[in-house]
Design a protein around this nucleic acid. Structure first.
Lengths: 140, 140
DNA sequence: TTGCGTGCAAAGGTTTTGCATGGCA
DNA sequence: TGCCATGCAAAACCTTTGCACGCAA
């Protein structure tokens, strides 16, 4: 069920997501922001448009550990993991999703497979923790 | 808000979870099972008791990628991580949660902190992939 | 004009909260 | 007896679905 029409709602939604790369947004946050900007979009439309964007590979969808619902995040093609293997680190404080291109992931995957017979799925695996900015903020 | 009393509901719930180690259960599944066994427990109580068990470290809580709600899983201490750092590997095929005591995790955590400023939370981080048994079954 | 997109209302789930009752210690 | 635990009902959320209308192509 891919998108075939260009509509105002779709354009505004994609523009907003693209304006905050590396940051996941809930549907509620998106609707609130749109309303404040005077570009109100119905909640149903937001869900349906996001579904399409996920299917088209423009947006990623994650579910937070808490109960706040799913978060959607623009996939920045210029600054993101088009590489076969990369890290996804999720900050538990600010909610930011960090993409790391790093060989360490390859080491981990190799180790898991060779020593434990476990074949890692890098797309679904997310490292949880506290990012550098938040750590600095917390430590004052 | 830790548990202070021993109640029938708490005992039955914990016994059930402990009887299916390595397998996550939704609240709905738990309630259905209890009803079938003649040990009905109110949904509210299941939620509140699970919250306490999570807080006490008896049970882990995960949220699935789909919208089916959270799953709760007993932490098997005899076959699990009493060590400060350990792997949690979740098989995407059989759903088993595998605990690995392994120094590799220490390397990853150190690397993330030193090179990326990210402090890893080993408790909440889960590696997704395919376990050795399932891989053998798939290839067999 | 055609058919997808939109949005309101309503429904379906999961999870939480209020409140009176039950039960452990 | 003093609290905590329980569970019903209701509410709060998030998400999906039905349906009539709007709008891009």
């Amino acid at each position: 069920m891919k998108s075939e029409y260009r509509t105002r709602q779709r354009e505004e939604l994609l523009r907003y997501l693209a304006s905050v790369p590396g940051h996941g947004l809930t549907v509620s946050e998106i609707c609130t922001h749109m309303k404040e900007q005077g570009y109100s979009i119905g909640t149903t439309t937001v869900y349906r448009t996001l579904d399409k964007l996920v299917e088209e590979g423009e947006v990623n969808r994650y579910v937070a550990q808490d109960n706040a619902g799913a978060v959607y995040e623009y996939i920045d093609k210029s600054n993101s993991c088009s590489q076969p293997v990369c890290f996804h680190c999720k900050c538990e404080r600010c909610g930011r999703l960090i993409h790391l291109k790093c060989d360490e992931m390859v080491h981990v995957a190799n180790h898991l497979e060779e020593h434990h017979g476990f074949v890692l799925d890098p797309v679904r695996t997310v490292f949880y923790g506290i990012c550098g900015d938040c750590r600095a903020a917390l430590e004052g």
